[in-house]
Design a protein around this nucleic acid. Structure first.
Lengths: 342, 342
DNA sequence: GCTTGACATGCAACCGGTTGCATGAAAGTC
DNA sequence: GACTTTCATGCAACCGGTTGCATGTCAAGC
């Protein structure tokens, strides 16, 4: 199971790592002041072109690389932004992270990633830990209290994704629009009683979806019952199946695709055919065509959310002002094979 | 689609962010030297308990938070490690990232995440960008050349995941063992000709899997043909189906589950039943029970790989020595429903 | 030919901590 | 009581850059 290289006697070698070349060494070698070397890298227009060239040549030869930490100390700018998510392993987040990173990269910013395991304490700790090292922060689906978020927003530029707090710039994926379409779709298929399989109780999206379902159902003369699934996961969906069937409903909307996937598995175990005997709709559309039957789901716009959040953050950092932005991304229903007539 | 808060007239507010409290302010307020404040936080045993307590009280009252950037500049330790992956959206990586983060967190380290989009240039750029800000680096499935990796390893502690370079500590997921089991499994089911659907040509795992299949096949009197899928993705698997069927093989092993999933879709489109008319094995077991039919796959140990890599890195950073470690994680075949008699 | 201005470069302070060494007071030794 | 030891604290240099201001040079202006 574990194997290491044979030649253990040669295996411990002291590191002879090149202790980074500094600006002073370049300055000496090039016969200029440290400030000139600094300027050659940051404001070459202040120097004679030939001076810049000479410095660059020497720097190159010596293998000089600017030290970002030192630069950050004097300028206050580190070129990093933090991104905190509750669960990287949830397929909703990787595309968001990817998009955020891409957008950050366009402005030469690096992303500090934090994973909170859905734990507010861990989230608080990470924010504190990031504080000195990033210029701004994006909190995706934060599990923190409004007060804590406000407190952190007072310390540094902060953008929220899927969390709606007045006065703090936020990007919201409005799954309400898609969820309403889902209810309408189910109603048209003849379903009269549906279940909402809820997600984490401190999730803004969960509240939003539950509310949207209730209000939409009222309009279509459909009754709704809520069955909790505790966390957003395959297993909690699977174990919720008993409770779901006990309600007598003929269709369900799950908090997210992961939960829906668990429900699909649970239904299959109980030999309830989908969509023959039961219709199921997911949310976030992260599994879509992959499940069997292919899951009808509410589209997600996590990629755009990540991109927009970072772009708003960068703008905010640059203007050094905070605008009360509320950027809403609408969603829609993607019909596949997991829904049918009642 | 886009909505912003109504009260635009109030929306631009200059930031009045608390400009961080410094050690000097705490020192003045507590009537001690800056060094004492510093020690109160880093080596309280050097000070009288009552002095520490007084300093802490003042610091608390002022809302002092140590500046990690400044600390890093003088100590050379920033408490960050970098993790670079080729594609966050590939389900192989999130569990790895999560495990790495968890392990780092246990020692109070933060993770800098980099996504290279499978692009060596981007990877090189990110490494450079991280250089000043992290104490060590983990490169997962690096797409860089051996030379570049060696160069970077000379600059800072570096651990590789799924890349086998002599002299550089590495954690390898040996899919060879699982792949051999897959070939044996297929041979026992009566398959005499199988296809290996290859992945990225610069991927170490790809080479390893291809080699393992060939050598295993020889032992079981099975012939192997290779069909390229260019990148590791759903689409490239799907488009490869024509070429796969053209070989006349009755079974295939795909570079990874994503590719296999695409192949499944492609086969379904062509009305080739799985496992009735064709058997398929994936790799990495990231989709497993989710596909239809449930995919037989080679287990992945990405979680352990992430954990072990970070733990080796931390050890290496502490000892300031580099050991030629080659940590191998074996895999095995997980049989599900996508394989059957020929 | 002297003044003025533009401009390239250098000087030195600063960012916010850390740390080796010096200092001085209290405690211990004979 | 003088002498050493111990130890809490302060001093000041340092980490590697950035930047406002001073300086010196050279060409243009009159």
């Amino acid at each position: 199971m574990i194997s290491e290289a044979k030649n253990r006697e040669f295996s411990d070698i002291m590191i002879k790592r090149a202790k980074g070349v500094t600006i002073s060494q370049v300055a000496d070698a090039a016969g200029v002041a440290r400030s000139s070397v600094s300027r050659a890298f940051t404001r070459p227009d202040m120097l004679l072109p030939e001076t810049v060239e000479r410095i660059m040549k020497v720097a190159e030869a010596l293998g000089y690389v600017p030290n970002y930490t030192a630069r950050a100390l004097s300028t206050g700018r580190h070129g990093n932004i933090g991104l905190i998510v509750p669960d990287i392993a949830n397929p909703f987040f990787p595309p968001l992270i990817q998009a955020a990173q891409l957008e950050a990269d366009r402005s030469d910013f690096c992303i500090f990633l934090g994973n909170t395991e859905e734990n507010p304490k861990q989230e608080d700790k990470l924010v504190g830990r990031f504080a000195g090292q990033v210029e701004g922060l994006v909190l995706a689906s934060s599990r923190l209290s409004d007060e804590r978020i406000r407190a952190h927003a007072g310390q540094m530029p902060l953008i929220l994704i899927n969390r709606d707090i007045d006065g703090i710039p936020r990007v919201l994926i409005d799954s309400g629009s898609g969820v309403r379409q889902a209810v309408e779709h189910l109603a048209k298929l003849g379903h009269r009683k549906i279940v909402y399989i809820s997600g984490p109780s401190n999730s803004w999206s969960n509240k939003q979806r539950r509310t949207a379902i209730r209000s939409a159902a009222a309009g279509f003369e459909v009754t709704v019952e809520t069955v909790p699934a505790v966390t957003a996961s395959y297993n909690s969906g699977r174990t919720a199946v008993g409770a779901i069937l006990a309600t007598g409903a003929t269709a369900a909307v799950a908090f997210d695709d992961l939960t829906a996937q668990g429900v699909l598995a649970g239904l299959a175990e109980k030999n309830v055919s989908v969509p023959g005997a039961f219709s199921l709709v997911g949310c976030d559309d992260v599994l879509g065509a992959v499940t069997y039957p292919a899951l009808t789901s509410v589209s997600n716009r996590s990629t755009e959310a990540g991109r927009v959040a970072v772009s708003l953050l960068l703008e905010m950092m640059q203007s050094r002002a905070v605008r009360d932005v509320r950027y809403v991304l609408e969603t829609h229903l993607v019909v596949r094979q997991s829904t049918g007539h009642s």
